[in-house]
């Protein structure tokens, strides 16, 4: 489904990704782990098409199509979804309106009829329950005044509504208490299917107890330095990033978390 070859990317002239190679097949769940500053979030942003990052080398193929040739919104319509680490607020624009606009943009792209307000409301209410968000959140401004956990649940709700081919989850577990983590994980697990791939970016292994990955990759210094199965994450948890000779500048932070 997704093939990343020798991907280099930089921001403001500073190279962050220094040659990423990764193959993801439909139905698979991949976890990318690594200390902060390793390039995990950059990889998510680059795949989704954030123009703040410049791709300097390499290619990314999604289902036979060169992803890097596509605009951000075209990538989204081709099935790339990014659950943001820090979802931004859009004051005054109701969640419902935002979501319906997004869903209809996708439907239009697929040549399907747009959903009217009533139809969409019904669907959105069902999905909001799936992530334990009160339907009143649909009427509030996009992420406006949401708590950290509510924002993350809102992101997963969007993934469930948009039914992407590749869902990229950027530190979706950060800032969640154990109950919220459970809800979010259930949402993500509901996304798992044979024709969908999931790429999880996380600092900690605890998320992987809830969403069990097929593959685990360790990212450091802009490169994948080790790949393995589920057991790699457990080993990392036990031995720490130092085990792989990586300096984790954020160890102090992780303790705080």
């Amino acid at each position: 489904m997704l093939s990343i070859k020798n991907l280099h990317a930089s921001v403001e002239g500073k190279e962050i990704l220094k040659g990423i190679n990764l193959e993801i097949k439909a139905g698979e769940v991949h976890a990318i782990m690594g200390p902060n500053g390793s390039g995990k979030s950059t990889l998510s942003q680059v795949l989704a098409g954030n123009e703040a990052f410049e791709v300097t080398e390499g290619e990314v193929i999604l289902n036979g199509e060169n992803l890097l040739d596509l605009e951000t919104e075209e990538r989204a319509r081709e099935g790339i979804f990014l659950a943001f680490q820090y979802p931004v607020e859009i004051p005054g624009v109701s969640n419902l309106q935002f979501l319906r606009t997004a869903v209809n943009a996708m439907r239009k792209h697929r040549g399907e009829e747009e959903m009217n307000a009533a139809e969409f409301m019904k669907l959105a209410k069902e999905v909001s329950k799936q992530v334990d968000l009160d339907p009143s959140f649909l009427k509030r401004g996009v992420n406006e005044g949401f708590s950290g956990g509510e924002k993350k649940r809102n992101e997963i709700m969007q993934a469930l509504l948009l039914q992407p081919k590749l869902a990229i989850l950027d530190e979706t577990d950060s800032g969640l208490d154990i109950d919220a983590l459970k809800v979010v994980s259930d949402g993500v697990n509901a996304l798992r299917s044979e024709d969908r791939a999931i790429l999880m970016v996380t600092h900690y292994q605890r998320l992987l107890n809830h969403i069990v990955p097929d593959y685990v990759h360790v990212l450091a210094g802009g490169r994948i330095i080790k790949s393995g199965g589920r057991e790699l994450a457990l080993e990392l948890e036990e031995k720490g990033y130092g085990w792989l000779g990586i300096k984790d500048e954020e160890t102090a932070d992780s303790a705080a978390n």
Binding site: A48, A76, I90, V93, F98, T101, A105, Q158
Partner: peptide, 25 residues
């Protein structure tokens, strides 16, 4: 730029995104 990126990442045309953000305002 973050608001625009969020909207576009959800498949929304940039033009429609600006209009939506301004209307919300």
């Amino acid at each position: 730029d973050e608001q625009m990126f969020l909207c576009r990442q959800r498949g929304i045309d940039p033009e429609q995104a600006v209009s939506m953000i301004v209307n919300g305002f």
